[in-house]
Lab assay of single mutants.
Amino acid sequence: TRVETATETAWISLVTALHLVLGLSAVLGLLLLRKQFPAHYRRLRHALW
């Protein structure tokens, strides 16, 4: 049972790390898009919101 708990903890930390990386890359991508293609960014924002 101890090994299972350790594996679960590892999976949870892995998933958390993946979510963090995905969130950060999404934010960075949006910032880059905003900087380089303001028109595209505006259109995207209108489409999303």
Rank of each mutant, 00 (worst) to 15 (best):
L20R: 04
R43T: 11
S25A: 13
V27Q: 05
L28K: 06
L18H: 00
L44P: 09
V15L: 12
H46R: 12
L32E: 10
L30E: 06
W49F: 06
W49E: 04
L30V: 12
A6I: 05
I12H: 05
G23L: 15
A17I: 09
R43Y: 11
T7F: 12
L20A: 12
S13Q: 10
L22V: 15
L22R: 07
T5R: 06
E4T: 15
V21S: 15
P38N: 07
V3C: 05
L24T: 03
K35D: 09
R42S: 11
A10L: 06
L32V: 04
L48W: 06
R42V: 09
R2C: 11
L30D: 05
R42W: 09
E8K: 07
L33A: 11
Y41M: 10
K35Q: 13
L30W: 02
L14N: 02
T7Q: 14
L22F: 01
R42G: 12
L31N: 04
T5S: 06
G23V: 15
S25M: 06
Q36G: 07
L18T: 04
L30Y: 03
A17N: 00
L28E: 08
A6H: 08
L28Y: 02
T16L: 07
W11M: 09
L33K: 09
S25C: 15
A26K: 00
L22D: 00
E4H: 15
P38R: 03
E8M: 00
W11Q: 02
Q36W: 05
P38F: 02
T16Y: 05
L28Q: 08
I12C: 01
L24G: 02
L20M: 12
I12E: 06
T7S: 15
L32I: 00
G29K: 01
R45C: 08
H40T: 10
L44G: 02
F37E: 06
L32Q: 00
S25L: 07
Y41S: 12
E8L: 04
A17D: 01
L48F: 11
W49T: 03
L18K: 01
S25F: 05
Y41C: 13
A6E: 07
A39P: 01
H19F: 14
L28V: 02
A17H: 02
A47M: 14
W11C: 09
L18G: 02
A39M: 11
L20W: 00
L32R: 06
W11K: 00
R2L: 15
Q36I: 00
E8Y: 01
H19G: 15
W49A: 06
L30T: 08
L14H: 08
E8D: 11
R34G: 09
L48D: 07
R34Y: 08
R42Y: 14
L28F: 05
F37C: 06
H40S: 09
L18V: 06
L33G: 08
R43L: 08
Q36R: 03
W49I: 02
E4W: 10
L31R: 05
R45D: 06
Q36H: 07
H46L: 03
A10P: 06
S25H: 00
V21K: 00
L32P: 02
L31W: 06
L33I: 12
L44A: 10
R2T: 14
L48T: 10
L18N: 04
T9L: 12
L22T: 15
V15M: 11
R42C: 09
S25P: 05
R43S: 12
T9G: 15
L24I: 09
L22H: 01
S13G: 15
V3M: 03
F37T: 08
L48H: 03
L28M: 10
T5M: 05
A39V: 13
T7A: 15
G29C: 13
H40M: 10
A17W: 08
A26R: 08
H40Y: 07
E4F: 11
H40F: 04
E8S: 07
K35Y: 09
A6Y: 07
Y41N: 04
L31K: 00
V15S: 01
L28C: 05
I12T: 11
S13C: 15
T9A: 15
E8R: 06
V27F: 12
E4P: 02
S25I: 02
A10C: 03
H19Y: 15
L48P: 04
R34P: 08
H46P: 02
L24R: 03
A47V: 12
V21I: 11
V15N: 04
E8H: 07
L14K: 04
Q36K: 01
R45G: 06
L32T: 05
R34C: 12
T1L: 13
L44Y: 09
L48Q: 02
I12M: 03
H46E: 08
H40E: 13
T16D: 07
V3T: 04
V21D: 05
T16M: 01
R43D: 09
K35R: 07
A26T: 12
A47K: 12
A39S: 13
S13R: 07
T9F: 11
L44F: 14
L44N: 00
R34N: 01
T5Q: 06
L31I: 08
W11T: 00
W49Y: 05
L31A: 12
R43E: 08
L30Q: 01
S13W: 12
G23I: 14
L31S: 07
L30K: 05
P38W: 03
A6K: 10
W11V: 12
H40I: 02
T16V: 13
R45Y: 04
R34A: 12
T1G: 08
L33M: 12
Y41E: 10
T9K: 12
A39N: 15
E4D: 14
H40C: 05
L20P: 07
I12F: 03
R45K: 12
A26I: 14
A10R: 04
T9P: 14
G29W: 08
K35M: 09
A26L: 13
L20S: 09
H40L: 06
T16W: 02
A6M: 11
T1H: 11
R42N: 13
L24Q: 00
L32N: 01
L31C: 15
I12D: 01
L44Q: 05
L33P: 05
A10M: 03
L30S: 09
R2M: 14
L28S: 03
R43N: 11
Q36V: 06
S25K: 00
L20C: 13
H46Q: 06
S13H: 10
R34L: 07
G23Y: 07
R45E: 04
F37K: 06
G29T: 15
A17V: 10
P38S: 07
E8P: 08
L24V: 10
L33F: 13
R42A: 12
V3Y: 09
W49H: 07
W11F: 12
A39K: 10
H19V: 15
R2H: 14
A10N: 09
G29L: 15
L44V: 13
K35C: 04
L48V: 13
V27L: 11
R43I: 10
H40A: 11
P38D: 02
T7D: 00
A17K: 03
A6S: 15
L32Y: 11
H46C: 09
S13T: 15
H19Q: 11
S13N: 09
A6G: 14
V3D: 03
L22C: 14
L32H: 08
